[in-house]
């Protein structure tokens, strides 16, 4: 037998999660370590190409793009977290309701899921954002209201499965109340699923936040959001300032990818059917 000193798959997965988490935390709290003085207008260092001093270059007002990108990502992560959190809560409540409150409720909720899946996400976001007059409220409510359906389906299926499991039936026979069963049997079983669902929902939330802000219907132009940075950069593309769009977009891509990776890794670790693959 070959002795293997390198990490096994489980350890590797765990390290992926830890490192990814640290990176995201660093970006989330970037306000504490970046030099916020760099984003003030400084006309002496306008349109500087990327260098060691300005990693991502500077824009037409001499603002450091690295600092702007970090602050923008931090804002995007916050908005995305709120949106994903709300969406998960809705999915949890509706999924549980569909599985436990009888046939009529089930049919109504599955009709509701179809309803929300039938409008393209982005169009629904534009509509909701328009109704609420844009800004934080429009974006966050929009994300909450549009991202729950697929997770709600998962939750519903899970609850259905647990409800008909042997040990739950035994528990019921022993005279435990519905509430007790929900708290002690269904909820613990559901928690990992919901956690993973939350992590996998987040990439969509943050991408849609950036998209709607990019279109001009999201956060206001004064915010340092990543969508704003990218839509501003469009005006300067034809003058060859490629770094204005390239690095912020790439950073967004990396953040989304890291979240996706953490979600996938968590699933590998927690989900018993996949843990030993």
């Amino acid at each position: 037998m070959k002795t293997n000193l390198s990490m096994n798959r489980r350890q590797r997965t765990l390290w992926t999660i830890v490192l990814g988490f640290l990176l995201l935390m660093a970006i989330l709290f970037s306000k504490t370590w970046v030099n916020t003085g760099n984003i003030l207008t400084n006309l002496e260092t306008r349109n500087v190409a990327p260098s060691f001093e300005h990693l991502f270059g500077t824009d037409w007002l001499g603002r450091d793009m690295f600092t702007r990108t970090m602050l923008g990502l931090s804002l995007s992560i916050k908005v995305g977290l709120l949106g994903a959190f709300g969406s998960t809560a809705i999915a949890l409540i509706l999924g549980m309701a569909a599985a436990t409150m009888g046939k009529v409720a089930d049919q109504f909720i599955s009709w509701l899921i179809d309803l929300f899946l039938s409008v393209p996400h982005l169009v629904a976001l534009i509509l909701i954002s328009f109704t609420l007059g844009g800004g934080y409220k429009g974006v966050i409510v929009g994300i909450m209201a549009t991202h729950w359906p697929s997770l709600a389906r998962v939750v519903r299926a899970e609850v259905m499965q647990v409800r008909s499991a042997e040990y739950v039936k035994v528990s019921r026979r022993l005279g435990k109340s519905n509430g007790w069963i929900a708290a002690h049997h269904i909820f613990p079983h559901l928690l990992p699923q919901v956690l993973i669902g939350f992590m996998l929902l987040f990439p969509h939330a943050i991408l849609h936040e950036a998209a709607i802000t990019f279109l001009g219907l999201g956060l206001s132009p004064h915010e340092p959001a990543i969508g704003i940075i990218l839509s501003e950069s469009m005006k300067y593309l034809s003058s060859g300032l490629w770094w204005l769009a390239f690095f912020p977009g790439l950073s967004l891509l990396i953040v989304v990818r890291v979240f996706d990776k953490i979600g996938g890794s968590l699933r590998l670790l927690i989900d018993p059917t996949k843990a030993h693959l």
Binding site: P203, L230, S233, M234, L237, W242, L253, V256, R257
Partner: peptide, 18 residues
């Protein structure tokens, strides 16, 4: 494929333009 799934569409568009 996994990388593309986390790429913002409009950013790809911007890259194409550039």
């Amino acid at each position: 494929c996994y990388t593309l799934a986390s790429t913002p569409t409009f950013w790809v568009g911007l890259l194409m333009l550039m």
